[in-house]
């Protein structure tokens, strides 16, 4: 094949260059995902505090974060935040991206936790109270072990969604595969091959993850019924 549009030589030349960014791409995905998982708990906890005004404020902060594009948030954290007198801090592109993507997606993950907690039957709370559990033991032994497993497939989906949002961070200079492909393109005036490589890498990584999560979902759905031989009541 001798096309002026596509060159396998360029492809092979670009491949190792683009792959240099893989560590950052995967690393940023994992770091911002862990951040979102942890921060999601913070939202869920804050919203459960009994104060009505506080609940209202927290709900609207979450709504605000969710309704603003993550790209704008990244720009804000990286460029605008350091300019605020007194509290402004200059952060590296990677740290900015972890915080930006982490906080943005933590608002969704907080909702997932909430739905998991609300799916626990009211009787479980009452039984914990009747058995005189402390608040901490009630959460540790009774509520969370039932609330979290059903959320695992949904949390897994967010891992893939976040993975696909990570290229956004190239715009503030995180040297992931997207930034590498872009700079290869700029240097060699050849965008087709490096960006195709980016696409292939994302496909190769997301698709197996999606299959894995679907399997997990099926397993979770059958978990409580699996051993049911006699129907209750």
């Amino acid at each position: 094949m001798n096309s002026t549009y596509w060159s396998w030589d360029t492809f092979l030349d670009a491949l190792p260059f683009v792959l240099q960014g893989l560590g950052y791409t995967v690393g940023l995905t994992i770091a911002s995902y862990l951040f979102a998982l942890l921060f999601g708990f913070v939202w869920t906890f804050l919203r459960r505090l009994p104060n009505k005004v506080f609940h209202f404020v927290v709900t609207w902060i979450m709504e605000f974060i969710r309704s603003t594009p993550p790209l704008v948030q990244l720009f804000f954290i990286y460029y605008a935040w350091p300019m605020i007198p007194g509290i402004g801090v200059t952060l590296s592109p990677f740290t900015s991206a972890v915080i930006g993507l982490g906080i943005h997606f933590s608002t969704y993950i907080g909702e997932i936790y909430r739905s998991g907690i609300e799916s626990v039957d009211k009787g479980q709370w009452e039984a914990s109270r009747a058995l005189n559990f402390t608040t901490i033991d009630k959460w540790k032994k009774v509520i969370l072990p039932q609330a979290l497993p059903p959320t695992i497939p949904m949390l897994g989906n967010y891992f893939i969604i976040m993975f696909k949002e990570v290229p956004l961070a190239s715009i503030i200079g995180v040297a992931g595969i997207m930034l590498m492909a872009n700079s290869y393109g700029a240097q060699n005036w050849a965008y087709l091959e490096p960006l195709t490589i980016v696409g292939i890498i994302f496909l190769l990584l997301s698709y197996p993850s999606a299959v894995l999560i679907r399997k997990l979902e099926i397993k979770m759905n059958t978990r409580f019924d699996k051993n049911a031989t006699i129907k209750g009541n």
Binding site: D121, G123, Q124, A130, L131, K141, F224
Partner: peptide, 30 residues
Amino acid sequence: RGDIGMVFQHFNLFPHMTILENCMTAPIHV
């Protein structure tokens, strides 16, 4: 509350524990 126990209309057993664990958890942890 420690002196009071209750049995509910809908049992409210802990589904993620065996029946032995259901009985043991409160005396051990509470």
